[in-house]
Design a binder for these strands. Structure first.
Lengths: 339, 339
DNA sequence: TTTCAACACGAAAACGTTTTCGTTGCGATT
DNA sequence: AATCGCAACGAAAACGTTTTCGTGTTGAAA
């Protein structure tokens, strides 16, 4: 086994000083051509690569970005990571990924863990529990220590930092508006409990659209789902007991579940009831019928977040000006709606 | 802004030596109760956390695992990462994730990058290009330097290291056998080009099952798909020109595409043609009809891989005995087959 | 009074770099 | 012959830890 070779070993082997080796490898003109060539040849032969850890310690920069997200087995988050990773790679950064599993405590632990020197900054999306508790001390602590954070999607306005979001409210408004202007009369809403920031915003967009078109919202057409695994019955109830002709779901799981429920009660999508979902994921693309959806471009969000973070990391002046970037969304029309 | 505090700063502030501070924080009985208490209080007040980088340099251990996979926007890989991350977390490790994008060069670059001190070991699944080139020098180089690698799913037998796989051949055999014993006569196979190791193995399992039951394989019922984005026409051709009653697809994308093609030519799944896919992902669970599939437990694979790697990392003796762990698979019956 | 152990603490090395600031030796200039 | 300048190299600090090995002080035992 050939262990990794260090400057010290090269120096010893060639009987010169460590400094000379280091300088030779960086092609310093302080060192004679001859020595440089000799050292470089030797280094190449022994496949010398500078030790990242030592460099990090010296430079006080790890060239590493910490990602903290609620879960990874989730198409949207996976696309965001993909976007981040590619930009990071391009700029010579690596990414450490940790999962909060929607737990406040895990989020805190992971953040503190990585903040102890492992990363230069963070890109994160808040756990449900964090959003529920509204406790952001861990974020503030880290920011206070000079490590930048970029929040995406599940953000909070209580923390001052860069953010990347879609306009959830507007997107929901547009989807709802589409239904209204296409003469759908009874538009149901499948949403989350209110403490999930994006769920709340999408609900607001739905309500705003109704209000704007003088449609009075019907309490019984709005379902706030807490437990995604056991919502099917709720939805079946909704559909069988109400005269609904459209459903707007704030995520694609709710959408596809709705479609299954609709089929279950013997109705057809989109002829009896049209459905629009949120997030253009695998499900929307491959379910039958394919689902019309609000595209939430995870790749772009990840790319943008990574660029914002790296930009902040690489400029030396501490800029106290934070920005919130809004990624545009589109309605992608598929088979679950008629045009 | 309150920068991170170091031992040196604490020492200076309390007018004692760095060693005393370090020992106090580690509760060494070399130090008087009094001093210990004083230091600990001070450290807590200033929220002292030891610097991971410095520790890594000292201990020659990063407590970090490198993951290199072809892509992350892929349910299976996401589940594997999830499995790895949770086990890693449990043992106090972090994970750095990099993507090869199916490119040999990127795989090499990422591997070398992380091997320069950033991680203690690797968990990886080979890129298509690597499998095609059959060039594994980068892996051998890293292993030679004493860094353990665990390969999963897309592996090679040309490298000696720990591996985690499913028995692809057996799983495919079982799926095919199910068709045969349930009286399906013309079983088509949708598979990948041969250099993808898992595709090849699954093809072999299919052929083996046919052979075992004295069913002669029909060339025209076997399609090797290179470009997943433009395979629909190929599949439509297959179905319209042959009298098929069953389709075995080596991944779920092929399976769902087959179903759509079958519907397109006016036939019904499962009544006219039954379909079995591979990988129990989102698509299989939510498409209509839901798809009977070979479950390939990504979580378990990730967990197992992580455990194998960490175990090897934490035992001091260099064990030259490598093992290949086989994760069991099951046929999960859903609506795309009749029983 | 001397000796010894126990106690409490500090100095310094080590991990692998980079970089600043010397320090040589030597040929050229006065 | 003395001085200068330059080329080529080395010593050492710094990054933040941990740990080994002193070292000085104290109290008790001889």
């Amino acid at each position: 086994m050939r262990r990794k070779v260090t400057l010290k070993q090269i120096a010893k082997e060639l009987d010169i000083s460590i400094s000379t080796v280091s300088k030779s490898l960086r092609d310093s003109h302080e060192i004679s051509e001859e020595t440089r060539a000799k050292v470089q040849a030797f280094a190449k032969l022994y496949n010398y690569k500078p030790n990242n850890i030592a460099l990090s310690l010296k430079n006080k920069k790890t060239k590493t970005i910490g990602i903290i997200i609620p879960e990874i087995v989730h198409h949207f988050f996976a696309t965001v990571i993909s976007g981040i990773e590619h930009v990071a790679n391009e700029y010579g950064y690596n990414v450490i990924v940790t999962l909060s599993d929607e737990s406040f405590d895990k989020e805190v632990i992971n953040l503190e863990m990585l903040a102890s020197g492992s990363t230069d900054g963070f890109i994160m999306s808040l756990s449900k529990e964090t959003q529920l508790k509204k406790d952001f001390h861990h974020l503030e602590e880290v920011i206070n220590q000079g490590m930048p954070i970029v929040l995406f999607d599940r953000i909070t306005n209580d923390v001052f930092c860069d953010k990347v979001i879609i306009d959830d409210q507007l997107a929901a408004y547009n989807a709802t508006e589409f239904f209204i202007t296409n003469n759908y009369k009874n538009i149901a809403l499948l949403t989350t409990v209110d403490y999930v920031s994006v769920g709340k915003l999408r609900t607001e967009g739905y309500l705003k659209a109704l209000a704007n078109y003088n449609v009075s919202p019907q309490e019984n057409l709005i379902i706030k789902i807490e437990d995604i695994d056991h919502c099917q019955d709720q939805i079946v109830d909704l559909i069988s007991n109400n005269d609904i002709d459209a459903v707007f779901a704030v995520n694609e799981l709710f959408a596809v579940t709705a479609i299954k429920a609709i089929n279950k009660v013997g109705k057809n999508v989109p002829n009896d009831i049209a459905v629009i979902g949120f997030t253009d994921g695998i499900i929307s693309q491959f379910s039958t019928p394919t689902i019309t959806t609000v595209s939430q471009n995870g790749i772009k969000m990840g790319e943008k977040a990574a660029k914002m973070l790296i930009e902040r990391l690489e400029k030396e002046e501490e800029d106290e000006q934070y920005t919130t970037e809004i990624i545009e969304t589109d309605l992608i029309f598929r088979q679950s709606t008629k045009t």
